[in-house]
Design a protein around this nucleic acid. Sequence first.
DNA 1: TTTAATTAAATGTTGTTACATTAAATGTAA
DNA 2: TTACATTTAATGTAACAACATTTAATTAAA
Lengths: 151, 151
Amino acid sequence: MSIETDIKQNTPFRTPYQRVMVNLMYTSNWISTNQTQLLKPSGLTPQQYNVLRILRGQYPNPVKVSDITERMLDKMSNASRLVDKLVLKKLVLRTECPSDRRAVDVVITEKGMDLLSKLDIKLDEWDDNQREKLTEEEAIHLSHLLDRLRE
Amino acid sequence: MSIETDIKQNTPFRTPYQRVMVNLMYTSNWISTNQTQLLKPSGLTPQQYNVLRILRGQYPNPVKVSDITERMLDKMSNASRLVDKLVLKKLVLRTECPSDRRAVDVVITEKGMDLLSKLDIKLDEWDDNQREKLTEEEAIHLSHLLDRLRE
DNA sequence: TTTAATTAAATGTTGTTACATTAAATGTAA
DNA sequence: TTACATTTAATGTAACAACATTTAATTAAA
């Protein structure tokens, strides 16, 4: 559905750039809502999931809280408190970094890895749904346009 | 910059679709941060700005709170409390709807219209920046791909 | 070496979001 | 009409986000 119809707008956008901006916010919100619902049964928020994926990416090496902050999509979020939540759920381990006692090393646990594996399957299904809407070439092109927009 | 570089990811995305999803979240967050900063001097949050724009679109007709909710990008947001904030700033007027005493009519004030006019100029500048990154055709294409993705 | 500046993580605070619940008005069906 | 369901807005609440501040460790400079 066109973004104008989706948001019931009756006056057209002044420029195609404004249309893109609104469309991006709307689409991202749509994805985010879907993702939140997908993760809810696992008791994870999208941000917590994001942290787990960052940790898996480095497994079995630890990642410092400051590195997590740098890699998170939402730079303003509080990685420290997110790690707190994950520690409580025993999905990650937090240990003092031996070489710098200010820093904190975080590692994903086996329980965390298992949870991610289960979620991979769900995510692949969601992935397959998108496959029906865009071809691979279109998906690649879309990413490319987004990269250019942020330049 | 490519999204992989932006988020310092060293393992590639499994599919172009996953890349698009992450890219969309990242890009939208980037836009949202920019927008928040742009609006901050006016004392408006992006959502409050969104409500004002919806009201201007119907001016001088009133819009019910339920209609605002329907048209907002973030459907889960609480239009009632957003209108509250705008009433406090005298940017909108809230009156009981005569034909349905459950409903509430909201109209943008002259002060609200003036504020939007000032913001239009700022927004156009931001618009011009994007113009250097994507051609009009590319912007149109990008919106089209986003529409298709949400189908 | 002592002092100052910087860095890393944690914490405090204020406002917001997501969601559930409430309260009042309206619609509907027996 | 009366009872019940639905709609509309407002409110309560718990978790979260944005941002500032604090505390401790490290680095750099005097």
